[in-house]
Amino acid sequence: MRRSARLGVLGAGLAVFAAMMALAFAGLPGFGGSTHPYRDAAVAATYGHNTANAVSSINFDQRGFDTFGEETILFCAVVGVAALLRPVRGERRREVKDSGRVLESTSLLVYVLFPLTIVLAANVVAHGAVTPGGGFQGGVVLSTGIHLLYVGGRFSLLHRLRPLDWFHQGEALGVVLFGALGIAGAAFGSALFANVVPQGQLADFVSAGTVPLFNIAVGMTVCSSVVILLSSFLDQTLAIRADQGGRTGPGPEEGAAT
């Protein structure tokens, strides 16, 4: 299709889409109103289980099974990326040599921030049921902290301090732990993903029953997932090279055909 024709079709489609959205939004309750029936039900349920952070309570207590699905999506995406980005025929892995120069101020900043970020991540995961945060957020912070080593230091340093095998196992373990906690809810409580642990006092560090445990499981999975994802992409950029004199991948036949 010619580019101008495509733009015409796109314009018509976007106009219809915008009109439908405008119609739908006109039927919504106005922005910022005080009628939120789901909010009222969720707040009552959150108080029922003595959880301070309502978002954590919804994610890990009230709709734990959905979050299990969400975690499985992440897990599958990581498996998919690892399968797509493995070295294929005609490629080989080379040793990455550290080259270039890192500003000393950058290095210093990283050496200060690296431990701080790790501690912050542990804090965000551990207090997921009490303060804003939780397993997803903390896991991302933790993996970012680990990759600070690459930003301000060297790839070899990251390579040494980030044993990938651990993260492969950590990811699987996190998913299994999440599922096991859900099945424990069915075994000891009323339903799958039921909150069976005593819930303690609102806003205490140990409160909200199973929510902190779910947070830890999710934190493990998310951190490991991001580390594995980034290591796959970094490998593509730095370590995987095509063999000399050949195209990469199973492509030469197609190249000859065209």
């Binding site: 005080s34 939120h36 789901y38 909010r39 969720a42 707040v43 959150t46 108080y47 959880t51 301070a52 952070n53 309502a54 978002v55 309570s57 919804i58 009490v130 303060t131 804003p132 609102l202 806003a203």
Partner: peptide, 18 residues
């Protein structure tokens, strides 16, 4: 913010956590 504690109670208006 829907994070309950000493300042945000059961009847404080909060934004929708769902």
């Amino acid at each position: 913010a829907p994070v309950f504690g000493s300042q945000v109670g059961r009847n404080t208006p909060v934004v929708d956590p769902v």
